[in-house]
């Protein structure tokens, strides 16, 4: 190795769920490890460990990513949202509510990742048909539900989100 100075630890500053953290990490530390082991945000799960299952999905600057396939150093200077940052003032996020109401889980292991990816999905497709939902959740595996109620929950959350957007616009107009 020809570089003079060792860089086997590095300092990062990351915003996670609206809080700013500065930490010294090894570059090989995965983002999911950082979230769980340093910050104690164990709501984000490690499933397959091979970029397939999507259980570790978080948002990086508002876009869904698999936090097992990113180094924490790559998030330096960026904003991360985990499942733990969704609820506001004790009120569940509409996607969390829909998963609850439509019983879109059984064991619940895939749920944090499913919810994070579903939020990304309805941002891009505000009124998704079944195929669009299944296609958009291609990177998230559930081994219990058969996906049926997950699809229903995503469509339900899309509907409530559209309706609240309309009522907000009407309030604005009034």
């Amino acid at each position: 190795m020809a570089t003079a100075q060792s860089t086997r630890t590095t300092s990062i500053t990351v915003e996670v769920d609206d809080m700013t953290y500065t930490d010294v990490v090894e570059p090989r530390m995965l983002l999911v490890q950082y979230l769980r082991e340093r910050l104690g945000k164990t709501g984000t799960l490690v499933g397959c460990d091979t970029t397939n299952c999507g259980a570790c999905t978080v948002h990086l600057d508002g876009q869904s990513v698999k936090s097992c396939t990113m180094f924490a150093v790559q998030a330096d200077g960026h904003a991360v949202t985990t499942i733990e940052g969704l609820a506001q003032g004790g009120e569940l996020h509409p996607m969390q509510k829909a998963f609850h109401e439509k019983h879109a889980l059984q064991c619940g292991f895939c749920t944090p990742g499913m919810i994070m990816q579903s939020i990304d999905l309805i941002k891009e497709h505000p009124d998704p048909d079944e195929h669009t939902v299944r296609d958009g959740l291609e990177g998230n595996l559930c081994r219990c539900t058969g996906y049926q109620n997950i699809v229903a929950a995503v469509q339900e959350a899309a509907r409530t989100t559209r309706e609240s957007a309309v009522s907000t616009t009407e309030e604005g107009a009034a």
């Binding site: 970029t51 999507g54 999905t57 990086l60 876009q63 869904s64 990513v65 698999k66 396939t69 990113m70 990816q117 990304d120 999905l121 958009g136 291609e138 990177g139 998230n140």
Partner: peptide
Amino acid sequence: VADPQVRHR
């Protein structure tokens, strides 16, 4: 390519 999360990165 792969899935939406992978396409973001």
